[in-house]
Simulated scan of single mutants.
Amino acid sequence: MNRPMPPHETLGNSAEPVFAPAPELIAWARETFIDEGAPLLNEDHRHLRWANIGALWTNVPNGHAGRRIVGQCEMGLPPTGKWGRARIERQLLDWFGEVPTFLLTFDAEYASSCSDAQFMALVEHELYHAGQERDAFGAPRFSKKTGKPIYGIRGHDVEEFVGVVRRYGASAAHIEELVAAANADPEIARVEIARACGTCQLRAA
């Protein structure tokens, strides 16, 4: 399946904000990264086979601390007041027919002009934020009622000071796996996307 592209109405200098549902993007992500037998299967996303994921293209510029944001992952319904939550629920139902577990939003201008590798990295980055909750022992949590994964927004695998690693080493900071991954050649392509992720910027604020 070819990489999905944003619709025409989300491109250009429209004076009005546009948010366009992108079911083709989620279908592509599932066929490319999530579903069993996908050509670029990533087992880290296995839990998302049971998740309802919605996606939007937008022409609305976004940024934080001087950095452009081109992608963001959120839970479907944010914890807000009754009217605000109901208003968002109504909009999600109009867009997707149901409230998604996760909502991914992508900057249409960036998505239309970036390379294939940059686009794949962006989509996978947001999928990584669509996480599965863990118990006190670090094991994945599942619903006792349905047996399905319990979902939540996931932070990054590593949060440590460079100085701690420099002074005490990777093992002291428990980042040996990250160091090994960083020293190996990339499996797909070498790109940078974390600084343009709205979920990361919100968590850092």
Rank of each mutant, 00 (worst) to 15 (best):
M1F: 13
N2E: 14
P6Q: 10
T10F: 00
E16Y: 10
P17N: 07
F19H: 07
F19A: 11
A20C: 03
A20R: 02
P21Q: 07
E24N: 11
L25H: 01
A27G: 07
W28E: 01
W28R: 02
E31I: 01
E36T: 12
G37K: 10
G37M: 10
A38I: 03
A38M: 08
N42T: 03
D44Q: 06
H47G: 04
L48M: 06
N52I: 13
A55H: 05
L56Q: 04
T58W: 06
N59D: 15
V60A: 07
H64Q: 12
I69V: 15
V70G: 01
Q72R: 01
M75W: 10
G76M: 12
L77K: 13
G81K: 13
K82F: 12
K82V: 13
W83Q: 12
R87K: 15
R87L: 15
I88V: 15
I88R: 14
E89W: 04
G97C: 03
G97V: 04
P100N: 11
L103M: 06
F106K: 05
E109L: 03
S115Q: 09
D116L: 15
Q118T: 04
A121M: 08
V123W: 08
V123Y: 05
L127T: 04
H129L: 03
A136R: 14
F142G: 01
T146G: 11
G147A: 09
G147D: 11
K148V: 02
P149F: 02
I150F: 02
G155Y: 00
G155F: 00
G155N: 07
E159D: 14
F161Y: 15
V162M: 04
V165T: 02
V165W: 01
Y168D: 09
G169M: 03
G169F: 01
S171T: 11
A173K: 00
A180T: 02
A180C: 00
A181H: 02
N183Y: 01
A184N: 07
A184K: 11
E187A: 11
A189H: 15
V191D: 09
E192A: 06
A194H: 09
L202F: 14
R203G: 08
A204L: 11
A204R: 08
A204F: 07
A205W: 08
